Structure formats: C-alpha cells, structure tokens
Amino acid sequence: MSYAHWETVPTRWKDNDVYGHVNNVVHYTFMDTVINNWLINEGGLDIHEGEVIGLCVESHCNYHASLTFPESAAVGLRVGHLGNSSVRYEVGIHRADRSELIAEGHFVHVFVDRTTRRPVPLQDPLRAALTRLRVAP
C-alpha cells in the first residue's frame, strides 16, 4: 500500500504491556498523533483557539504483528475519502524500516463548530492539506 505522508513515531517504556509488546491502545495513539500533526502543521488547524475542531466519530485497527519498546514505528497516512465536513484517514503502522506491516486502520473525523458542535464545511487550507493526502488506488 502507498501513503502520501510518513512519520516516525517512537515507542515509550510505558507502551509495553505485561505480554511484552506494545499494547493495542498505543496503535490508536500513533494514528491520532500522526493525523493531528498533519492537521496542525500542514492544515493550519488551531486546536486551542480555532472555531473549527475535528471530532473522531469512528476508528478501527487490524493487528498483524507486534512492536516492542524501544522500537520506532513508521506510520503511513493517506486520505481514503474526503467529504464536505468529514474525512476518512487510512493509516499503516510499519516497522521503522517499513519492512513489515504491524497494524492498519482507519480514523474518521467530522469537522464541527467548536461551540455548537454542528458539522461545518472544510475550508482551505485544511481542505488543501487533506487533498494532498489522497493516493490513487
């Protein structure tokens, strides 16, 4: 699978569980981190003061292999669907050298007015940044 953006995310000591591997909830943290880094750095999303915020309305992850601290993960990000006020991200978590797929999932944001929590249309530069994450099948 191809991704429009890659980011390296380190594991932390506390990410390992009693079974000796990175716990499943950490994979969602990886997804959330890479997505929000993109939204803030590339899309100009102001998470503290902006009128628009993104709410997660759906997430899913399939697990294929394990990571263990102190490994880092190479996280690939792309947009699978871009709607009027929503976006479905597709995320692949790989070994740092991208040799093995560890987990893959999706994450859906609906962008809403911070005060009313009602959906709002995506505006530039956010829409432009998300459009750059589209990858042809």
Results as ranks from 00 to 15, higher is better:
D113C: 09
G92A: 12
D113K: 02
R78K: 15
R12T: 10
L39N: 07
C61Q: 08
D46A: 07
Y3N: 07
T11P: 04
N37A: 11
V75W: 06
L67V: 13
N36Y: 01
R98M: 14
V25S: 12
Y28L: 14
I53R: 02
F30G: 00
G50V: 02
E71D: 14
R98T: 14
V9A: 02
W38F: 12
E7V: 12
A4V: 10
F107K: 03
V57I: 15
V34N: 00
L39I: 04
A73H: 07
I102D: 01
E42C: 09
G92P: 08
R78L: 05
V91G: 05
T11W: 06
V112C: 05
V18F: 12
T68N: 06
T33W: 04
A74L: 14
E90S: 06
I40V: 15
L39D: 06
D97T: 06
R127A: 13
E100F: 01
V22L: 08
F107M: 10
H109G: 01
A74I: 11
G43L: 05
S85M: 07
E51M: 01
P10S: 11
T11G: 05
V52G: 00
E71S: 06
V52M: 14
Q123N: 12
S99Y: 10
L55S: 02
V91F: 02
F107I: 08
V75R: 04
P137N: 10
N84W: 08
E51Y: 00
E49M: 11
E90T: 09
F30S: 01
D17A: 08
Y19T: 10
N41T: 13
I93W: 01
S86Y: 02
N41Y: 05
V91M: 06
F69I: 09
I40E: 11
